[in-house]
Design a protein around this nucleic acid. Structure first.
Lengths: 218, 218
DNA sequence: GTCTATATTTCGATAGAC
DNA sequence: GTCTATCGAAATATAGAC
């Protein structure tokens, strides 16, 4: 009876079964949470409703995310990461029309594809950023300073009008995110119908048309 | 004893004592509610906190406003009325630069003076306008259609570039309200300090500069 | 009209069987 | 890891004295 120790049965057949199941459940929960937080706000959202949307018992949510706030924080982080990557469209562009035009396109596309994440971020900031203030003070500040330097370089090179780079960035954020954050208002004014493909193209075109013309070199 | 009916003692000395007291209490409650709803959202706000900010017992709130939702609705209505009046800057203007320039100035000033009302509106719309959907479908739609006609008139008269009037309105709303709704983010990126008088002037100037140039006649 | 005390409901979180 | 049942805290709303 000495050799009867069970073979160390590592789950080699499907080595990622556990870890994949965890990942999948987390994704399901995060997606449901994003939707519920966007529609009800942090205070208005309930773990029960998120669980219902995710199709899981409420207790499971607490197994994957200890508290409501921890779950919320993850949702806010995710949209922030997506926006940071949109800066790729911005950098290394030869001129403002190319760089800023691409940035507008990318940001508009994010508003279209991730309206809920955008709303959760807006809600968080409107309430004084109680959960992600550190992101504003560090990551976002650095990101902004870097982009301001790029724009100022274009201005100094005479490639665009001498506008205030910081306020231009605010205008870009405001204008593009409006189509996500105020999507319900836009839709209502669109006759109650979601924007069509043509509507989105018109929106993008107009934003670029006005802003790029507004900042073009004299 | 026939003439001893007490003189019909109408409160003539201070004829508005009661009604003024009511008005004053309502104002105090509404102001506190606006602040709390803006900072915590509808779901996160509590009647207790509103009562504390107003300096009144919680029960009094329920005396003046039967439910939390009724109080909230009044707050949302108030900012909406203020914005509607901003259209006065728009109408009867001889040209786009004057009309839209004045509208931007007025809207920016409202963002500066009523940031909380703007946030409550934004929050309401982001959550699907559960309380004021009728305003979107009627008052706001009519208002928007009217302004679109004015802009289209300017375009037809060759006074400005042929942009999409509807999307121009969205840009105006987004850009001006950003300084209220995302005021906390703006302030954080401003080194943690509120915008100075000069900062506000710069913001206004840049918004007008870019947009007015962006829509100017070819 | 005002306020204290409390009823009622709802939610976040957890215990404990499976 | 999953789920049912439940605890304890906190919120809206109201009852009733003043």
């Amino acid at each position: 009876m000495t050799s009867q120790a069970p073979p160390t049965k590592r789950p080699q057949k499907r080595p990622h079964n556990r870890i994949e199941s965890r990942r999948e459940n987390e994704r399901t929960i995060l997606s449901a949470a994003e939707k519920v937080f966007a529609e009800a706000g942090f205070g208005g959202a309930t773990m029960q409703l998120i669980a219902d949307v995710a199709g899981l018992p409420k207790a499971n949510l607490h197994y994957y995310f200890a508290t409501k706030e921890e779950l919320y924080r993850r949702v806010v982080q995710d949209i922030f990461e997506i926006w940071l990557h949109a800066a790729d469209s911005f950098d290394n562009a030869p001129d403002p029309a190319t760089g800023i035009g691409a940035y507008i396109d990318t940001k508009m596309e994010i508003s279209r594809r991730h309206p809920n994440g955008s709303k959760v971020w807006a809600s968080e900031v409107m309430h004084g950023a109680p959960v992600i203030q550190d992101y504003l003070e560090n990551t976002l500040r650095d990101w902004t300073d870097g982009r301001i330097r790029v724009i100022q370089g274009w201005i100094d090179a005479g490639k665009m009008a001498p506008i205030n780079p910081r306020h231009l960035l605010y205008m870009l954020w405001a204008t593009t995110q409006h189509y996500a954050d105020f999507g319900h208002q836009v839709e209502t004014l669109n006759g109650g119908k979601p924007l069509s493909e043509a509507d989105w193209q018109a929106a993008k075109h107009n934003v670029k048309q006005i802003i790029l013309r507004g900042i073009s070199a004299v």
